[in-house]
Design a protein around this nucleic acid. Structure first.
Lengths: 189, 189
DNA sequence: GCGACAGTAGACAGATCTGTCCATTGCGTC
DNA sequence: GACGCAATGGACAGATCTGTCTACTGTCGC
């Protein structure tokens, strides 16, 4: 066994990633997913066990990709202030991608029941972002890193919603300006 | 006819308002709505014609209520700067209500198909809020009222999402602080 | 009393969804 | 060539959802 890497699983995840994100978790049935993946229904249930588990893996994949994207942007930035703002640069780059439709966790949560898999994975991601912002705020010398992180997170959320609801990715520029304004006000005071 | 005011219609709207908001449009079936309203299924279809139309009326009611709440807060405020910030006071008051679960338009849009009734009503509401913020920004003497309105709208959206996703209404305070920061920076420059 | 009418209760049709099951097929390993 | 195993294709069960339709009932103006 040279790690066959089960292409069925990969194709299912790719199909779920595209369809669930573009049309919503509820609106896309299992049949659509397996058709797009070119896979039998039994393969889906053998691999993941349930639709809910597939949704969870889809969101975990999104989370992982987002973390890597943001981390890379932060590490590429020079200096503590730039590292803090790099989170918004990463977000702006995301907005510019064709087919971006807002935060997948917000979208999935709107359809999910409280306490379920979706909420769990979403909470994980949100806690990670917030902890990262807090850490970067502390590194930048903010007097109250928690408060600054919270303000920046409001902006981060607002940007994702604006893109989704208004279907207008041009919001990225005001976002970065506002982020800089908030950061500089916190570092000054 | 002394305007019987068809109580069936009112009870249906009240039931839809509670259930759709608390659990989501997709998750709540027609049967749940008519059961809560204490009304026959035929009454629903005679009155509204379809579930989609009922959802539209539910959102229109939310829109109307929000407009009135915000308008009242703005009119009660003294001076142009306070009027601009009053929008966020109204939002904070909303957050403090028990059972608040974030913006109903964001929630409904996440489940709806593009171009449908939900998107239409949501777009109406968002355009109204943005126009209001722009007008208030102009009255306050902002050099670029559009830009200030856009920044404030980012904050407004972020606050609604944070409350929904983190289930934490205490975000209202940072929101108001940040709003004041943004407004003062714009009026100063 | 009576007709008009709004509303009720619930069966029913038709679609769609998740999840199960089974017989079959293709492929790599010995 | 034979075996094991993952994957296939599709029928099927069972639930649920929207929307229709019929027969019945209570009320109000005349």
């Amino acid at each position: 066994m040279v790690t066959t890497r089960s292409p069925a699983r990969d194709r299912l995840l790719a199909a779920a990633n595209e369809l669930f994100y573009a049309e919503g978790v509820h609106a896309v049935g299992i049949d659509r997913v397996i058709e797009r993946a070119g896979v039998a229904k039994a393969s889906l249930y053998n691999t993941f066990g349930s639709k809910d588990a597939l949704v969870g893996e889809y969101l975990r994949g999104r989370q992982q990709a987002n973390r890597e994207r943001i981390t890379a942007a932060v590490e590429a930035a020079d200096g503590p202030r730039a590292r803090l703002l790099a989170v918004f640069d990463a977000q702006a780059a995301l907005f510019a991608r064709p087919g971006y439709r807002g935060c997948p966790f917000v979208a999935a949560s709107a359809e999910a029941e409280p306490g379920g898999t979706v909420q769990k994975v979403s909470d994980e991601y949100r806690a990670w972002v917030r902890a990262l912002l807090t850490e970067l705020a502390r590194d930048a010398g903010a007097p109250d890193p928690d408060a600054l992180a919270r303000q920046l997170y409001l902006l981060y959320d607002g940007a994702a919603i604006a893109v989704r609801m208004d279907r207008d990715p041009s919001v990225a520029d005001p976002v970065r300006e506002t982020a800089a304004l908030i950061v500089d006000a916190a570092l000054r005071g």
